[in-house]
Write a protein that binds this DNA or RNA. Structure first.
Length: 676
DNA sequence: CCGAACCCTGTTTTT
DNA sequence: CAGGGTTCGG
């Protein structure tokens, strides 16, 4: 019972971590040890209450939080990796993806659906705009950008509406007609392409859990981090996972609710109290991070929020020095002085404070530019968090799109991305013809391409011989990758084959003759290295280890990869897979979700995870530049909150100024006064 | 009909 | 600074 980690908790924390109630709300202000309590509660459930870890679901919002949680629970002081690996832990989106993969048939999905990121969604809408030219109004055709459509559609879905509900509600509203048309067309297109976008990962899961509650049979305890960020859909998913409305623990802080624009609703705290009878509320009021000065100033900001649920926060920490406010004439000057100040602090402290202890928090990603160049000019090393993510780089997405398309040949978005990278002589016109033909009954993109390249497709006249040859090569690449997948080759081998067969390096150099080309090529290499963590399913490791030669690349089957698996936020391995039956999903209390094959795991991790290589290097003596949003949950001894001016924070387009206050509150509570 | 070369714009926050 | 739009040569 008295496990070592509990001795590290104060009375309120201990009470929260070991609360016997089935429904617990832990309201935790900044720096009050929220993550420590949540991880301790998981450990307590397993070690003292003898709950099986495979029956515990831990949901976070960001990959970073999931990673941090996993890291802490792996420590022998808590669970150790043997036990913690069995937990079902991840972001909302990754857990939903797993549920849908397992129960695809229950929500009319094919087992090999792929996940569309925001770029792909927008691109799909852009194309639909052209196709729907006859149906949209003048305004919808000329004034509405794809992004505008997508934002409205996404907002509706985050408010819990699917297409049919949206159309039902807005039918007859003349100004919503374009959206209705686009919404419907978009959903149909995604379905036809066997694609699920971010919003639908959640919406489909909500439907799954509502219609097949037993899909959550394997769950006995649900814990949710950052509950103030949940929207109605996520709330329903959480509730669905708890089935009878039991065994739910949430931690959160209404004052740190900064995702209202994504329909996050602080009302979910009250809703939970109403719907989960006997909810215990535990307040964590002692702050261990901030100085008295900072806490006071930060509280002053957040208390502007008149609708705020009143709660207190105190600290035993020192008074500290007052915050300093610097007024600058312009952004260059601002960046310059911050950079100089950083240099000064490091020198003045005699390197007691180093670069890694310092962060610059910005409201918008692009604001980091000025600071990057200022830091560069003083040769101060830095990392940007939340900028262009590794898996969002064009060259990385290209290679991944090849894998996606070969895995899900309906993925038109992936196809469009890769067909001209490298150039194959297919332009917009030919592309449209191919797509149109592929959408006819019985046809697929590949079947159309096969017809063209073998000359059978006389419906497409006047395709140059060169293009035909290129397409034949593409079909060949597809077939070969299919074969490799069937053989359960290592992913990095498949990627190497794709990269080699497409001559991707040459293409990159041609597109980016400067130094840029090299760094892009490095990224491709890094992707291959990353892929080495993914092992094919174990059952076919022993058989035939013959070397196959294909297009000059030697493919060694079943050779162990160089890296051991060490993947954050991939949900744990699970050997025994059972096909879901029609009515009753297969998982009993003992069982866990199936992971899918290594290709799926890889594709999901790369589309659902945002962390870049650089972020992992944040500890390595570099200044951190981060958005205020992604700084939540993090802390540094020295924090610069920049561009605190009207229009930036609060942002011009902000719908809710109180939320801007909360955002500034989050930023202001990042500095920690103890750093040794 | 494709693609290279040019100029233009305009940027919230995340999965 | 990329991503879209436009123009022009093959």
């Amino acid at each position: 019972m008295d496990t070592p980690f509990m001795k590290k908790l104060n009375a309120a924390q201990l009470n929260a971590a070991t609360c016997k109630s089935n429904s617990v709300q832990i309201l935790a202000g900044p720096g009050s040890g929220k993550t420590r309590v949540l991880t301790s509660r998981v450990a307590w459930l397993v070690l003292s209450e003898h709950v099986r870890p495979q029956n515990i679901v831990v949901v976070t919002f960001t990959n970073k939080a999931a990673k941090e949680m996993r890291h802490r629970l792996e420590s022998p002081e808590l669970l150790g990796s043997m036990q913690s690996d069995k937990l079902c832990m991840g972001t909302f989106h990754s857990i939903c993806a797993r549920l849908l993969r397992q129960y695809h048939a229950h929500v009319q999905l094919k087992p090999n659906f792929t996940i569309a990121d925001t770029d792909m969604s927008r691109h799909a809408i852009k194309k639909l705009k052209e196709e729907l030219i006859g149906e949209l109004s003048d305004y919808g055709r000329t004034k509405m950008k794809p992004e505008a459509y997508f934002n409205v559609i996404s907002k509706a879905r985050n408010a819990g509406m699917n297409v049919d509900q949206y159309i039902e509600k807005n039918y007859g509203e003349w100004d919503k007609k374009d959206i209705c048309i686009m919404f419907k067309a978009y959903e149909d297109r995604m379905h036809a392409d066997n694609l699920v976008d971010f919003d639908n990962l959640l919406l489909y899961t909500r439907v799954l859990l509502a219609r097949f509650p037993s899909a959550a049979n394997f769950v006995s305890h649900v814990l949710v981090d950052e509950f103030q960020d949940t929207n109605v859909v996520q709330y329903d998913i959480v509730k669905g996972l708890t089935r009878g409305g039991k065994a739910l623990t949430i931690v959160g802080d209404p004052d740190q609710s900064i995702f209202g624009w994504r329909n996050a609703d602080r009302g979910n705290f009250i809703k939970m109290q109403r719907e989960f009878k006997g909810t215990q509320i535990c307040n964590l009021e002692e702050n261990y991070r901030s100085t008295k000065h900072i806490l006071k100033s930060a509280f002053h900001v957040v208390s502007k929020d008149k609708k705020r649920i009143d709660k207190s926060l105190f600290t035993e920490n020192a008074e500290g020095v007052p915050m300093s406010m610097l007024k600058m004439s312009d952004d260059t000057m601002e960046a310059q002085s911050v950079a100089e100040e950083i240099k000064r602090i490091v020198e003045y402290s005699g390197s007691l404070i180093t670069y890694k202890d310092i962060a610059i928090l910005v409201r918008m990603n692009y604001l980091s530019r000025a600071f990057e160049s200022a830091l560069n000019s003083l040769s101060i090393p830095y990392v940007v968090i939340g900028g262009v993510k590794f898996f969002e780089r064009a060259e990385v997405k290209d290679i991944l799109a090849y894998l996606r398309f070969c895995y899900n040949a309906n993925d038109t978005e992936a196809f469009e991305r890769i067909i001209n990278r490298p150039r194959r002589g297919v332009g917009e016109v030919t592309m449209n013809k191919i797509e149109k033909l592929s959408r006819q009954p019985g046809a697929t993109i590949i079947s159309v391409l096969r017809d063209i390249s073998t000359g059978k497709g006389k419906m497409i006249a006047s395709i140059p011989l060169k293009t035909k040859q290129n397409l034949a090569g593409f079909v060949n690449l597809y077939d070969n990758v299919q074969e490799l997948m069937q053989k359960k080759s290592y992913i990095y081998r498949i990627l190497e084959y794709i990269i080699g067969d497409t001559n991707y390096k040459e293409f990159l150099q041609k597109e980016h003759p400067d130094k840029d080309g090299e760094s892009r090529w490095d990224n491709v290499g890094e992707l291959v290295t990353f892929a080495k963590q993914f092992n094919p399913p174990p059952d076919n490791l022993a058989k035939n280890s013959a070397a196959v030669t294909m297009s000059g690349i030697e493919i060694l089957e079943n050779e162990p990869p160089e890296n051991e698996s060490n993947v954050e936020d991939s949900l744990p391995d699970l050997p025994n897979y059972t096909e879901p039956t029609e009515e009753e999903p297969p998982l009993g209390d003992d069982e866990r979700l199936n992971d899918g094959d290594h290709i799926v795991r890889f594709l999901e991790l790369t589309t659902l995870s945002t962390n870049s290589k650089e972020e992992d290097e944040a500890d390595l003596g570099k200044v951190t530049i981060s958005t205020m949003h992604s700084a939540k949950g993090l802390e540094w001894p020295v924090v610069f909150t920049i561009a605190c001016e009207a229009g930036i924070i609060p942002h011009q387009k902000a719908e809710d100024d109180m939320e801007e206050c909360r955002l500034l509150y989050v930023a202001m509570t990042r500095p920690k006064c103890k750093f040794i």
